[in-house]
Each structure stands twice: as C-alpha cells, then as structure tokens.
Design a protein around this nucleic acid. Structure first.
Lengths: 208, 208, 208, 208
DNA sequence: CATGAATGAGGCTTCATTCAT
DNA sequence: CATGAATGAAGCCTCATTCAT
C-alpha cells in the first residue's frame, strides 16, 4: 500500500511541523528559561532544542533579552487566561481557587517571578523589564479582582487585596515542597491544605 | 623606552581593617549573591567590592562554587540562630512569629532558596549542594519544631507541620510586595496582615 | 566622550585563502605543538599564527586537548603513510630504510612521542590518549611489519621485531645531534651512519 | 626501657630529617620534574611534596627556573659520576656498556634531555640553559671518551664518536618500550638485545 | 628559616552577537 | 528562511613571584 504522496513543490515545510519557527523557538525557550533561568540558558541551547542554529534564532529575535521578554510575556498571558477562565465559573470563590491551585500544582511550571528575575534585570532594557512587569501585573490583577469582588460580597473579610493576591500565590509555591515531607501528600491533599489555610485566614476575624 | 614600573607584589601592609580578609570576602559575597544571584556575580565583582584582586579571593576560597556554598551556609546558619533565639522567648507563638516576621521584613535579605538555586545546582558539586540543603533544612526544622509543639499544645490545629513551615515562609516572601501596592503599608502593618492570615488559617477548622 | 568604535563582528569576507580554516588551524597547531610542546603553546598562540582569534579556534575545535589530539593523530597518520609508501618499494630493506632515514632527517619533524607526551596525559581524556596511542602504534606497526618480513626472508637475524622497530626509531632521533658535532655531517652521511650501525647490528650474530 | 632522650634545646631540627631543607627541595623537585616535566610541575607542587610552603622554596631558590637548573645539573652530574665509575672498570667495553645499560633500565629515570627540554628553553635564561647544556655535554663526553679510546684500541670500528654516543643513548631509550611487547622481556634480556645490536653495529664493516 | 597573604599576568573556555552567503 | 563562520568581551582559574612578619 505504498502510495507515493504527491509532494508539494518548492521548499518543503521543515519536517511536518505546522508551527511557524518563531513559535517553535518560543516554546523551547519557555521550557528552558523556566527550568534553568535566564543566565543558565544560552541562545545556542535554545537553538539546539529546536534543531536550528543560533543564527536562525537571531533571525527571528534580535537578542536574547528580547526572546526572553517575549517568552515571559507570552507565558504570563497564557497563565492569566487560564486563571481568568477558571475564575469565571459560577461556583464559590473557594472552589474556584481550589481548582486553580490544583491546576497549578499539576503543571510543573513554577512561576515564581520574584526569584526568577533576580539579576536578570541588568540584562534587560527598561522597556523590556516594563513589558514583563506589566504582564506580571495583569496576571495578578485578575486574581486581585476576584478578591475585591469577594470582599464586596462579604465572602471574605476586608483585607488589602494586593496582599491577598500575593499571599495566595506564595502559598501556591509552598505547595512545591510537598514531596520532601515524610509522607508525601497527593496534589489533591496539598491543594486542600493550601485552600484550607488561605480561606480560613481570609474569614472575618473573630476574637483572635 | 618602555620602563616597566616596578609593581608592588607580595603582601601589602595590613590596612587598619580589623576583620580577617576571608570574612570580608564572605560578607561582600553574601550581599552580592543575595542581591544578584549566583550567575550574575563574578568572582571579580566580589573582589572589587573588597578592594582586593580576584587572585586573593581564590587564595581564600578555591572556587566560586565553594565560596558560594560557604556564603549560603553561613547565612542560613545565622538566620537559623536568629530565628531560634526569637522562638525561645516565653510568649505566645503568634507573637513570636510576629516578631520574626517583622525582623525579616526589616532585613533586606530575602531567603527564597527555591528560586534562588534555580540553575545553580549545575555549578555545584553534589557535596556542596548537600551542604546547602542541609543548612536550609536545619533552618526549616527550627520553625517546624515550633509548629509541632504548638500543635501538641493545641495552640494551632492539626496540620502537616512541614507544610505549615513552608506556608509561613512563603507568606513572609509575600510581604515583599507591600511596596507596589497603591498605598504602601508599613512593615508593622504588613507583618500584622501576614500573621493575621496565617494564624487564622491555622486555627481549628470550624464549619467552613 | 568615549566613542565606541563600531567593531566589525560577524563573518569577514573570505580572504583569498584556499585552505579551509580548520585545516589552517591544524597546520599551525602542528608546527607549534611539535616545536614547543603542548604546555608551552597556548590556544592564543595558535590563533595568532593563523591570524584568527582564539574564539575562532574554539569554533572549530572544542578544546585545546581535542585540537592537540586531532593534530597528533593527523600527523602520525601522515608519517605512517609516507613511511608505508617508502616501504612498499621493491628494493632491499636496507635501502628502503636508508631512504626513510634521509627523508626523516630532512623533515624538521621529530616524532619523539615518548618525551613529547610527558605530563600531557593529565590534560587529555582517556579517550583522547587512546586515540593518540592508537595512531602511534599503527605507525610503529608499519615498520615492525617490515622487520618481521625481513626476518622471515632471513634478510636480518632473528630478533624481537618490536625492539627492532623502537631501536630504529631511536637511532633516527640520534641523527638530530649531527649538528653539534665538531664537523657537522651532511644528512646523507648521517643517514649512512645510522643505517650502517643498524643494519650491521641486525645481521646474524657470529662469534661476537 | 623508656629512656627520655635529652632533647637539644632551641629550635628542633625539622622532624628527624638530617638533610638540609635545600637538599630536600632538590630531591622532590627532581622527582617531579622528571616525572611530569617543567611546565607541569608548579612551585607549589614541589613545596607540598616537601611539606613546606611555596615561600620557603623561594627562600632557598630564587626562581623556578633556577631550581630547575640546579635540579637538572645535579642530576646529570650524578648520572655522569655513576656512568664514569662503571666505565672505569677493567673489563671489556662491551661488558661495561652492558652493565650501564642494565643500571639504566633498572632506574626509572629516563634522561631523555631532548624531548625533556622542549619548550623549556623559553623559560630559562641563556645562562641557565648553558649550565644545563654543559652538564649534559659533560655527561656525554664521558661516554664519548670511552668510544674514542675503544676506537684507538681497535675494539670498535672507526666511527664518529659523538654519533656513537648518541646512538647508544638513543638505544637506551628504546629499552623503555620492552613492556608493550607481546612477551615482555626482562631487563636483562632487553639489555642484552641493546648491547648485541649496538656492539655488532660497531664492529668493523665487512662486505655488508 | 619559614610562612601567610597578596597580586599581575596569562591561560582555557563560553557566549551574545554579527555578517556574508 | 536559514546557516556557517567569526569575534570581542568576559568569566573561571592557576601560577610565579613578592613582601611583611
């Protein structure tokens, strides 16, 4: 049953990839930057991951800094979208946060922008730094907004919503340590622990 | 007619410094590594900070990796001691944690080992990595112990103490964002917010 | 007002060189390593000889050790080929050896692997060392084979052929000293002396 | 029978060494330089071998080059003396050479000055180089003299004595390869092979 | 005698970036 | 689009050497 596929003339699309090269690069870059950090990933590493050469990467992105910026922004936009979607559901905020928490723990991605950007700022132009910060902030705003609304609905107590946001995100990160524990918890259990702590902590203060 | 200036080699007259050079180096290194991260600090940077030459740094520490290790371990030992001292006081745990929180927010140090070690592990030998991890763990244990004890005293609800520890440390980090907020909180207020959230979250769960 | 001259980066117009750069490098490296030894030749030296930068050398060969390995192997392969060719001729072995000797004395190359590799082994990986040793051995085998055959043909007396090989090569080296002598011999005379001594020494032992 | 040895007052001689430090250094240096070569041995290596510090080595010898020179010269003087002694015996030259050969093969020392000095000359002052060359030449002269005498006695054929000397020394070096052979020869056998080849090669030429 | 501390020079290697093809 | 070749800058580390003690 060997059917000779009629091959399109001209330069064949690189392998069977449907993705444009620039996207391919971003993807590899995302993975690498997230895993190893800006300084520990060379442009060559990214190129090799894509089975391309350094020069090709430079053809698509004029500098490592810009590639990084694009990468980070795109990633945060995606995360923001995902979070946003999950926050739209018509279920109690506590449940929505629980779902987000679980989703986050399932993903390996650990978007700890804080430690992540350590020292990187020197390598970026102010504009690039701002781009990233903006994307980061937008991501935060989504969550912050949910807290503000919940506050208005008296679902949670009065609290600085920015703090609440960062508190939540911090706790997410704490979830990564579940494995070291003596009896490693499942993702589900960990998510429960996080939400339990957070939610209880956000309730109206009593006599405490 | 190039006259080679006789350069001053050898050991220079000891300046009026009281600190031994090795300590001086560690101090500068601590500051730099903490602020910029391992990869973004060159041995030359450290040397310059001390007004020494690279070679001198290498005289005292055989490699950048070892310098880093020494630096991190020493730092964590100090933090652990400080925390330990504050945990010994005979006042309610909530108050002790509040004090620690305030002290942490006052210090610029941001011991977020997680993001901090990103990619660094490749640069360290397994032994060095272990040294650091051990110091880190010891630091955590101190806090964990306090939680275990509080649990026994029914001061807080039953909870995985390791998780409680990481949750607390995570929240500490969330405190760093206070400045971005629209109306920047004082350290005192931030500490209160953190402890309020944490402590409430650690209380016996009710009907929530 | 420091004006940073725009420096010419990137690939320069290919000069009128016909040789590929990688060959050019090997050639310069061969000359330098042979003349000064591994430790006394820096990668920069090689680069300068080629009118290239160090980085370019590293573009073609990942490390000094590998460059050295390639260099040595290639050299020994060439020598082996040359020797092999001269050994194929249908003339008495004594004459063939005489020709080889003359050719060797004419070349400046002094393939004394023994002293040459002193201390170098620490700088090479076991694989690299093996590569070199293999090339060396192959070179020796060629000569050894000729002696084995000559022995079978009773052209020379029974003798350990490996020893005969090394003895011959050693004597070649002795030829380098001809210049110090009071009345420096010509290459031709020196070759004659060497072959005379060797050949006579390889004849059937009599009453001696 | 514990007798408390009356310990001499004052600074005790460093351990039980009788040797002056300067000799100790030379000894270690000899071993190291011979084994690894000039460039591969650092002053620190020498110091550590002696359980001293670099500074102490510099106290005794003002530079690495001078230390090397002293080391080499002393070594060659010793070798020359040893050879000289063995050449004085009242037995046939062939036997004396056989004895020397055996002695050389027994010692690990491989005084192949040729490959040994490769590239080192750049590190030495002309005077130092000359010192070494002189010692080397003196060593050669001793052997050369024996050949000259043997020639006069018609014990060997007429031949350039300098060549004969270098030929002999070269063959000595060939002896180091005995181990690689398929059936490794003993030192005695190897010495016999060498002398057999050499001696036969030095006999009056016949019709060959 | 001996040494601890310091240093300039230089060597190996990586990397972001550029340019001609 | 893609790439091979090249480069300056910078980073890690070693080492011969010096000097105050």
């Amino acid at each position: 049953m060997k059917v000779k596929k009629t091959r399109p003339l001209g330069r064949p699309r690189r392998s069977d990839r449907t993705q444009p090269t620039s996207e391919l690069i971003i993807q590899a870059a995302t993975r690498l930057f997230i895993e190893y950090g800006y300084q520990n990933v060379s442009v060559d590493d990214v190129a090799k991951q894509c089975d391309l050469t350094k020069a090709t990467v430079y053809y698509h992105y004029d500098s490592k800094a810009r590639l990084f910026t694009k990468t980070m922004v795109q990633m945060m936009v995606r995360i923001r979208e995902r979070i946003n979607t999950m926050l739209q559901e018509s279920i109690p905020l506590k449940t929505r946060l629980f779902n987000i928490t679980k989703a986050h723990l399932e993903a390996t991605v650990n978007f700890d922008m804080d430690g992540f950007m350590k020292g990187v700022d020197n390598a970026l132009t102010p504009e690039q730094l701002e781009e990233i910060t903006n994307a980061e902030t937008a991501m935060y705003q989504t969550i912050r907004h949910a807290f503000v609304y919940a506050m208005e609905q008296k679902e949670i107590r009065h609290i600085n919503p920015t703090f609440a946001t960062h508190a939540y995100l911090s706790l997410l990160k704490a979830g990564n340590y579940r494995n070291e524990s003596d009896h490693p918890d499942t993702i589900d259990e960990t998510a429960k622990q996080i939400i339990q702590l957070l939610w209880q902590g956000l309730q109206p203060e009593e006599e405490i």
